[in-house]
């Protein structure tokens, strides 16, 4: 019995170790493969905007910008919708609608990203284009809406990302809300809370878990490749405009990897992969930290 316990501990420990070492190995290999570009450009790689494979000049800022901008926009759009769906399904929805709704949101998560991309090209982009054309000139003067109304661009990318993120965030948020004890809602009701106030109390109780759900969605948006590549316009520029065609890290790797002829070009693309890897780790670390600090105030411990 004792030796079996030890064996069990060792084997499960080995799995955990393998997982950790895979993360380290990915980081190591990405660094090794991109060494040429790291040595040549150093920190300039992160902050310059020229992406010129012919001249051998590589700066990743437009891609970093495009990835973060599109993901943050997607987060802003998706979070209220996802939490709304989660609250509706877990608190308000008539029992008969519950199962179909849960099924549908989970189905949305299962659609391959290339299919989202096709839908984006044929439905979303034309719709966004007509919206952009309809925008009054007074608003078009703002930097947020500058540039020609192409349809493809940041807004389309953010919208498609939001649609893809909603099922993840809402599913996790729904599960988190389900774990809120009935006693919390009853406590609110017993003090004269309306249903809205009781739901707010439940959301507050579950807030760390909901932040986790939002961050999960953010992580997904950061790495999403195919659908974004198909609608963002693939133009490396740092622009605040929602209409401007831009580019993301994942998209440039997908588009240019096969045609990277010389070693420096290849190394630069791998370094973009490394940057994406680091940003994803940092975002996850920050969200972990956020959850920990919220939970660490003891008040949130029960909700973790």
């Amino acid at each position: 019995m004792r030796s079996r316990d030890i064996g069990f501990r060792l084997s499960t420990g080995a799995f955990a170790f393998v997982l950790a070492s895979i993360v380290v190995a990915i980081g190591f290999e990405l660094s090794r493969q991109s060494m040429l570009s790291i040595q040549k450009f150093g920190f300039d790689f992160w902050r310059t905007s020229t992406w010129d494979p012919v001249a051998g000049q590589f700066g990743a800022l437009p891609f970093i910008w495009g990835t973060l901008y599109s993901s943050i926009l997607a987060l802003l759009i998706a979070t209220p919708v996802a939490i709304g769906i989660a609250v509706f399904i877990s608190e308000l929805c008539p029992r008969i609608l519950r199962t179909p709704l849960v099924f549908l949101t989970e189905l949305l998560a299962a659609i391959p990203s290339i299919v989202y991309g096709l839908w984006g090209i044929f439905v979303l982009v034309p719709a966004v284009r007509s919206l952009e054309i309809a925008l009054p000139d007074s608003l078009r003067a703002l930097p947020l809406f500058s540039g020609p109304p192409l349809g493809v661009g940041m807004l389309s990318a953010a919208l498609i990302l939001a649609v893809m993120v909603v099922p993840f965030t809402s599913t996790v948020a729904r599960e988190v809300l389900r774990t809120v004890p009935l006693a919390q809602r009853e406590a609110a009701y017993a003090l004269g809370a309306t249903q809205f106030e009781a739901i707010r109390a439940a959301i507050f109780y579950a807030r760390t878990g909901i932040v986790g759900a939002v961050m999960l969605g953010f992580g997904r948006a950061l790495g999403e490749t195919m659908a974004v590549t198909m609608v963002i316009g693939n133009n490396p520029q740092v622009s605040a405009s929602l209409f401007a065609p831009q580019y993301t890290m994942a998209a440039v790797i997908a588009n240019e990897f096969t045609e990277a002829a010389d070693e420096l070009y290849l190394a630069a693309l791998v370094e973009i992969g490394l940057v994406l890897f680091i940003i994803t780790l940092v975002v996850n670390g920050l969200s972990r930290g956020l959850i920990w600090t919220m939970a660490g105030r003891k008040s949130g411990r029960a909700a973790a």
């Binding site: 004890p181 017993a190 003090l191 109780y205």
Partner: peptide, 18 residues
């Protein structure tokens, strides 16, 4: 809602808000 404000309730298991 008004009724529940006038008729307070304490539960079996303490349920303070976090």
């Amino acid at each position: 809602v008004g009724l529940r404000r006038r008729v307070g309730m304490v539960f079996q298991k303490s349920n303070p808000f976090p």
